[in-house]
Amino acid sequence: MSDLFDAVMLALLLATALAVARARDLVAAVVLFSMYGLTLCLVWQHRGAPDVAITEAAVGAGVTTVLFLIAVARTRREERR
């Protein structure tokens, strides 16, 4: 059960990380990155580090998402080709 959870989470991490790198739309990339942070938060919790999980959820999935969105809003939405 535990190994299955780890495998699913790691697959999800890999998939979201690749999706962030491939996304041309930067808003989509930011949302995917937030998803990556939330998945990582679950991994930390599962690994017995609730304090790291809290920080990951608040900063990794929350605050950086907002800061990235502001940065995208102030520049341009599409990645330069």
């Binding site: 304090d51 809290i54 920080t55 608040a58 900063v59 929350g62 605050v63």
Partner: peptide
């Protein structure tokens, strides 16, 4: 602790 609480206050 402090860092976790600070992250939540920031959020």
């Amino acid at each position: 602790g402090g860092f976790q609480a600070g992250a939540l206050f920031g959020a």
